[in-house]
């Protein structure tokens, strides 16, 4: 089975892009499964079920979605192997721009959209900077010049990535993406695999349920803003 991690800011078009790529792969009778990671609720599973793609939903609730991802992805792979998928796609929303659900030697895709503004590629962390493929969506809505500037900024933020434009509505570009998904490596499990980058750290009193604001209640892994007037 092949595995690919797809991430990207909320509403950037991840599900639409994946669905269009699946459409291309299904014509070659590829068996595909999807894992949808989200925080509170998701309705995307309905979209997958509609086209008969087996889907499992993982909701992180009050946990950091990234930590939730990494402690569950191993089981997801096991499920995928049991179901005899040719390809398992993990889809997760990067909510803090610092998320990095990408795994070494596993194809990593980051989806961003043109409407997000030209500085967005700079602002997104490892999720974009360490991805193998950057998919840019909603290109049909903006002007040609903006599209070109956006592509350039994405290239600057991650010069190694292959950058593709996919239209989630018409599917233009989805074939190219599906080809790349097909070309990725086979895996038997995720034993000994590592994340590409450390996940956002969190281990402080607030992680453990503290709600009180104030110096005395802040404990553990903290980071303070720099206000010169206070020092």
């Amino acid at each position: 089975m092949k595995l690919v991690t797809v991430s990207g800011p909320p509403s950037s078009g991840k599900t639409s892009v994946i669905l269009k790529a699946i459409e291309c792969l299904k014509q070659e009778s590829y068996k595909i499964g999807v894992i949808k990671f989200d925080c509170l609720t998701t309705f995307d599973n309905i979209l997958y079920e509609k086209v008969d793609v087996p889907v499992k939903v993982g909701l992180s609730g009050n946990l950091c979605p990234d930590h939730f991802f990494v402690s569950n992805i191993g089981d997801c792979v096991r499920w995928g192997l049991m179901e005899n998928f040719d390809l398992l796609i993990s889809e997760s929303a990067g909510l803090c721009n610092r998320c990095s659900p990408h795994i070494k030697d596993i194809l990593a895709v980051c989806v961003i959209d043109c409407l997000a503004g030209v500085n967005t590629p700079k602002k997104i962390g490892p999720m974009l900077k360490l991805a193998d493929i950057i998919v840019i969506t909603k290109g049909d809505i903006v002007s040609q010049a903006e599209r070109e500037v956006f592509f350039f900024k994405a290239k600057q933020a991650n010069p190694k990535a292959m950058i593709m434009s996919v239209n989630g509505i018409t599917g233009q570009g989805a074939f190219d993406l599906s080809r790349r998904l097909k070309d990725t490596v086979e895996i038997a499990n995720l034993e000994l695999k590592r994340l590409r980058f450390t996940m956002p750290a969190a281990l402080c009193s607030y992680c453990l349920g503290e709600t009180q604001i104030g110096e005395d209640y802040q404990m553990g892994n903290l980071k303070k803003m720099d206000f010169e007037v206070f020092s």
Binding site: D140, M162, I163
Partner: peptide, 27 residues
Amino acid sequence: RFTVEHKLIAQLSQNMNFIMDLTVQEF
């Protein structure tokens, strides 16, 4: 194939918008 530097088609569609808040010159 598939690289930005070799993007072959510039598309001027009818329903395009500018989303950047810049002057013509800055843009």
